[in-house]
């Protein structure tokens, strides 16, 4: 590979990385907002039957951001990682469901 092709592609990717970093910062801002909303709702003492599902949903969305942006799962070539992780989440949900229903149902 010629040297100048390398540096052109370096500049190209550097620009691309910079744009991605902008999305990372937006992701971070959203995660902070979700955290503030979750804590705020608990401090405001709304009805727990309403607050609990909402804060769990906020946690799931925040984790989704973390996985897809911070851990790059939105990038190409993450088919197998997604398979591994979602298999893990499937077993995880079954585990929690089993333990909670045994005791509380």
């Amino acid at each position: 590979m010629a040297k100048n092709t390398n540096s052109t592609s370096y500049e190209f990717y550097k620009q691309k990385n910079k744009e991605e970093m902008k999305y990372q910062l937006i992701t971070f801002a959203l995660m902070i907002i979700f955290t503030l909303v979750a804590f705020g709702m608990v401090i405001a003492e709304y009805n727990p039957m309403f607050t609990i599902p909402v804060i769990i949903l906020l946690a799931c969305v925040q984790v989704g951001f973390q996985l897809y942006y911070f851990m790059h799962m939105s990038h190409k070539g993450h088919g197998l990682p997604a398979l591994f992780l979602y298999s893990g989440i499937f077993v995880a949900l079954l585990t929690v469901l089993a333990m909670v229903t045994i005791v509380w149902w």
């Binding site: 197998l80 591994f84 893990g88 989440i89 995880a92 929690v96």
Partner: peptide
Amino acid sequence: WFFLGGETVLFA
């Protein structure tokens, strides 16, 4: 990533 799938179950 395979390991992280396992960690998910462990923490669950």
